[in-house]
C-alpha cells in the first residue's frame, strides 16, 4: 500500500492538472509532485507577452501558473484534502523572466490547518539561481467526511 500510493497520487494529480482548461491552453506540465510539494512548467508563448517592447511574459500568466502549482501542492499534502480553492495569493515580482525561457514554479504547502492551507511558491526561468517571482497564499481545505 505504502509504496503504490505516492505513484498513484502523482498520476491523479497529473490528470487533475491536465484536465483544467486554462492550464491546458497555457501548456502547463506537472513535472514533480508529492509530499505537499509540486513543480509545474509553462513554455514560453508569444501570446502571453505583456510588454511587446521586450517580449516579456505578462505577470498575469505567471499568476495563473503560481496559483495552479500552489493548489496542486495543497492537493498532494499527506492529509489529502478532497478539494481546495484560493483564498488569497500575493505575488512579488523580482525581475522580468527572460523572453524565450520556460517558466518553472515550485510550490510547497508548508502548513495545513483544519480548514486552511498555507503555501509558498517560487517561479524561475532557465536561471535557477535568481527567482523571477515568489508567492504566498492561503487556500481553503475541503476534507472528506469522516
Amino acid at each position: 500500500m505504502a509504496d503504490e500510493q505516492p505513484k498513484d497520487r502523482t498520476e491523479i494529480a497529473r490528470q487533475f492538472i491536465e484536465a483544467i482548461p486554462h492550464a491546458k491552453v497555457l501548456g502547463m506540465k506537472l513535472t514533480q509532485v508529492g509530499d505537499a510539494r509540486a513543480e509545474i512548467t509553462m513554455p514560453y508563448d508569444a501570446r502571453l507577452v505583456g510588454d511587446p517592447e521586450t517580449g516579456v511574459i505578462h505577470g498575469g500568466a505567471v499568476s495563473a501558473l503560481m496559483d495552479t502549482c500552489s493548489g496542486a501542492a495543497v492537493m498532494v499534502h499527506p492529509e489529502a484534502p478532497i478539494a481546495t480553492a484560493t483564498l488569497d495569493l500575493r505575488i512579488d515580482y523580482m525581475r522580468a523572466a527572460t523572453p524565450g525561457d520556460q517558466i518553472t514554479t515550485r510550490a510547497e504547502c508548508y502548513h495545513i490547518a483544519r480548514s486552511v492551507a498555507f503555501v509558498r511558491a517560487t517561479a524561475y526561468d532557465n536561471d535557477f539561481e535568481r527567482p523571477v517571482a515568489t508567492a504566498t497564499g492561503a487556500f481553503t481545505v475541503e476534507r472528506a467526511p469522516t
Binding site: 483544467i20 482548461p21 492550464a23 496559483d67 480553492a85
Partner: peptide, 21 residues
C-alpha cells in the same frame, strides 16, 4: 478556456488575478 475547475465550473484563480492586474 478560462475555466480552472471543470467540476463546478469556476473561473481559474489565475485568470481572475490576471484580469485584475
Amino acid at each position: 478556456k478560462l475555466i480552472g475547475n471543470p467540476m463546478l465550473p469556476a473561473l481559474h484563480g489565475g485568470v481572475t488575478a490576471a484580469f485584475l492586474e
